[in-house]
Computed example of a mutant assay.
Amino acid sequence: MISIKNLSKIYKSKNRDDVTAVDNIDLSINQGEIFGVIGYSGAGKSTFIRLLNRLEEPTDGKIIMNEKDMTNLSNKELRNERQKIGMIFQHFNLLWSRTVFDNIAFPLEIAGIPKEQRKSKVQELIELVGLAGREDYYPSQLSGGQKQRVGIARALANDPKVLLCDEATSALDPQTTDDILDLLVSINQKLGLTIIVITHEMHVIKKICQQVAVMDNGKVIEQGEVLEVFMHPKEKTTRRFVQQVMGEQVEQSPIHYFVKNYESGKVLRLHFVGETANQAIISKLVKRFNVEINILQGNITQTKDGAYGTLYVHMDGPEEVVNEAIKYIQQTSVELEVEENA
């Protein structure tokens, strides 16, 4: 487990006000899970991830990783612990004068690994990340996705227990992003690595993460299981991220636009999770109750732990019948919110 307690980073300035980039963060990350940290630019997430391996020095707090307090290590101890922490970057950070093979071998050279052992390890990693046949290519001869695969292989060279990903897919096109995310999931499953993903894209979170923390102004404002955060976002920032992948625009949503067109009935928001996404709830309601149902807006998306969908409907009919239909929905596994009485 990674335990982060009261972690803060304050940048001091003589001529301006101090800047608090990370503000008193507490997080627990389970071994072997993929944990996402999401926030907009300036939220403090990149500073946060650099604090974990002390590329940035914390102002306050503790980071317990691999059963060591990262904030209380000597320089020699820190060098040893960093070998157990891999890191991949947004812009790859490859050595452009070295081949794919030599880029991946570089951390092994620094660690003093014998040549034959290095060769065997690098070849194993090249196979793992899908770069077989490109060992002698230079970075300039590779696509963006291939460059990131080199970065991932290099980060795995010293058999780390933790992999830090700082906006690792934000420079890639959507299809390549999905390919790299699939690779990270595969690595997580094969090697049992704990992976911490920093991103501003909710698509990344929903596709591969089990847990997520939402950052804003240096603070963690919301955290939990990805599916739970999707279903019940508490903070405005979180709701905006969820809307990214659900295709909802606040100013165009049924709550703010459709409901004013109805003189009776109720606008409902239905949440479908996992197997409930396959339930024919609308047809059952129409058959069972004397109500009219108008579908206003809906969407479904896939998270790592199952499908999540929302459906806005306007239900009209005699008030007592509408209320009975609502009670019927509440007895199913479909979650329901009455958005507004029309």
Rank of each mutant, 00 (worst) to 15 (best):
I4H: 05
N6P: 05
I10K: 08
S13Y: 00
S13W: 01
N15M: 09
R16T: 14
V22T: 09
N30W: 06
E33M: 07
I38S: 08
Y40H: 10
S41Q: 07
G42P: 05
G42I: 10
S46K: 01
F48N: 02
L52F: 07
R54F: 01
L55P: 05
E56N: 10
P58W: 04
D60M: 07
G61W: 10
M65H: 01
E67I: 10
S74Q: 11
N75T: 14
N80P: 02
E81I: 13
Q83Y: 03
M87W: 04
Q90G: 08
L94T: 00
W96T: 14
S97H: 15
T99D: 05
F101L: 01
N103V: 06
L108P: 06
E109W: 02
E116Y: 10
R118F: 08
Q123F: 04
L125K: 09
G130Y: 12
A132V: 14
D136V: 08
Q141D: 04
Q146D: 11
R149Q: 11
I152E: 11
A157I: 07
E167K: 02
L172K: 10
T176H: 13
T177R: 13
T177P: 05
T177A: 08
L181S: 05
D182A: 15
L184G: 07
S186I: 01
Q189S: 14
Q189W: 06
Q189E: 15
Q189H: 14
Q189C: 05
K190N: 13
I195Y: 09
I195W: 03
I195M: 09
E201I: 02
K206S: 12
K207S: 05
K207C: 05
V212K: 03
V212P: 02
M215T: 04
M215R: 05
K219F: 08
E222Q: 15
M231C: 15
M231I: 04
H232S: 13
P233I: 11
E235P: 02
V245Y: 12
E248N: 13
Q249M: 14
P254T: 03
P254V: 04
Y257F: 07
F258P: 01
N261R: 15
N261Y: 15
Y262W: 08
E263P: 00
E263D: 12
S264P: 00
K266D: 01
F272W: 01
F272Q: 01
G274L: 03
T276W: 00
T276P: 00
T276G: 00
T276V: 04
K287I: 06
F289Q: 03
N290H: 14
I295H: 08
Q297T: 04
N299W: 03
T301E: 12
K304N: 06
Y308A: 08
T310M: 12
L311W: 02
Y312R: 01
V313L: 14
V313C: 10
H314M: 08
D316W: 00
G317T: 06
G317V: 05
P318R: 10
P318E: 15
E319G: 02
E319P: 00
K327D: 15
V334S: 01
